[in-house]
Design a protein around this nucleic acid. Structure first.
Length: 453
DNA sequence: TCTGGGGTCCTATTCCTA
DNA sequence: TCTGTAGGAATAGGACCC
């Protein structure tokens, strides 16, 4: 090992510019080179692929109902100030001519899988972040594929050739730098128009400080509105100012963990590795209702349907979980959670619903409910859980839910099979059917029907 | 303006048990 | 047998990410 940074007393990055440089001699350890690939307006761009007649128009993907938000939008819509996470009502006011489309996550998932194939042809070390971005550790690919900038441009070209989609690529020694660099490579939108970005931005080791210093603190991973407010109150607005603050001060104001973490990021220190696969720690499903609901019986029925949807997700992942968490958001947007951990892992809809409904019954619902959600954590593979499920639990709730789980074991498998062949709506919990539109009791908007006499 | 749905991680508190 | 304590698990809330 001829070029070990430690052995030679200095970082190789000081010699070759940090991120890659020329391919090194065969046995030398290479400087880490991380890439962050971020699709441009991903959901909206996929919609335009399938509906080319919309190209050039402002297109907004997201819930178009009264309580929806923007999930993605084209740059034509961004010119009007529309951006993701904005309430749809506001987006419509800003851009009345926009075309609103409901999201098709299955479709985005398909394209995302194709995208991953491109990434995996460059390096096996791919860490997806959502459907539309990923970190790639290309440290070991440089000898074969060339300088980082060459690799990055190659990825960009292949994504465009194979998927007709554009992306931005950031390159640096760490995930922190790579992520910020990809943002710097993005197209810039103003009311005047769209300025095409570089597409690729490489930040070399000796450029890191100059690159980070002028950025706003909000640019850092982990600084959201609440942390930004606190930092602003301390007179800190840029990453450079943050780097000048004594870490002890940050730890005092933000807590020891987040404070120390933020001090590291501001100084450009981010040792976090690219992690190819992460096992899910929780799975959940939640629904916001078109209008607030007050009737406990109605809410219980909604919860059963949500638990049923969650059971589908669990079956798909072949997982069970021991902790059931109920989430309730009230009309005033305050949110509470209630959790119960069982001795036996569940995946059957009725068993999950039983626990969730019991939790719901412990909550005061008089102020009106806008959202209900159920999630399961403490996950384990279903086949392993099945072997261990002879233990029916000790406390009353566990015992009851475990018995329900056992009783529904075979039924759940049969339901999954039927849905596989005939679609999700082929089998539904009976208790949810009173909320569906149907015959003798007259037409009503879905989910708004009056219960039959 | 009025705030989705899918998650992760962190902190504080409470409760149980060795 | 009783008491104090330390530590872990469970619980709840909040911030943040895409």
């Amino acid at each position: 090992v001829s070029r070990s940074p430690r052995a030679s007393g200095g970082s190789t990055s000081e010699r070759d510019g940090g991120v890659g440089g020329e391919p090194s001699s065969a046995s030398a350890p290479l400087d880490p080179t991380i890439m962050h690939v971020d699709m441009d307006a991903f959901f909206a761009a996929v919609e335009l692929l399938d509906r080319p007649e919309l190209v050039g128009r402002p297109v907004i993907v997201g819930g178009s109902g009264a309580r929806g938000v923007v999930a993605s939008c084209t740059y034509e819509a961004r010119r009007f100030g529309v951006h993701s996470a904005m309430p749809s009502s506001r987006a419509r006011a800003l851009c009345p001519d926009a075309v609103f489309l409901d999201g098709r996550h299955d479709r985005y998932g398909e394209v995302s899988a194709q995208l991953r194939e491109v990434f995996l042809s460059v390096t096996p070390l791919v860490e997806p972040i959502g459907l539309d971005e990923a970190f790639l550790d290309v440290t070991g690919s440089k000898r074969l594929l060339g300088r980082p900038e060459v690799i990055a441009r190659g990825i960009r070209e292949r994504v465009y050739e194979e998927l007709s989609l554009r992306c931005s690529v950031g390159v640096g020694r760490s995930k922190l730098i790579a992520k910020l660099a990809s943002r710097a490579a993005k197209p810039v939108v103003s009311s005047g128009g769209v300025q095409v970005g570089d597409g690729v931005r490489v930040v070399l080791a000796d450029q890191e400080t100059a690159f980070l210093t002028p950025l706003k603190v909000e640019a850092l991973w982990g600084v959201g509105p609440a942390t930004a407010r606190q930092l602003h109150s301390l007179g800190i607005r840029t990453v450079g100012e943050l780097a000048d603050v004594d870490p002890a001060v940050l730890m005092r104001h933000l807590g020891s963990g987040p404070g120390a973490h933020l001090a590291d990021l501001a100084a450009g220190r981010d040792p976090s590795p690219v992690v190819p696969q992460r096992a899910a720690k929780s799975l959940g499903h939640e629904e916001t209702f078109p209008r607030d609901l007050f009737d406990p019986q109605d809410l219980r029925a909604r919860l059963v349907r949500i638990a049923d949807s969650l059971a589908d997700v669990l079956a798909h992942h072949q997982l069970r979980g021991r902790t059931v968490t109920l989430k309730v958001r009230f009309a005033d947007f305050t949110t509470l959670t209630r959790a119960h951990t069982l001795s036996v892992p569940l995946d059957a809809g009725p068993a999950i619903a039983e626990v969730a409904v019991a939790l719901l019954d412990s909550v005061d619902l008089v102020s009106g409910v806008r959202l209900l959600g159920v999630s399961l954590s403490g996950l384990q593979p279903a086949d392993l859980a099945r072997q261990l499920s002879f233990d029916l639990g000790h406390d009353g709730a566990s015992h009851h839910a475990a018995a329900t789980q056992a009783a529904w074991e075979d039924v759940s498998a049969a339901v999954a099979g039927i849905r596989e062949r005939f679609g999700r709506s082929a089998v539904r919990p009976a208790s949810t059917m009173r909320t569906e539109k149907r015959g003798p009791w007259g037409p009503a908007a879905q989910g708004e029907a009056t219960p039959p006499p």
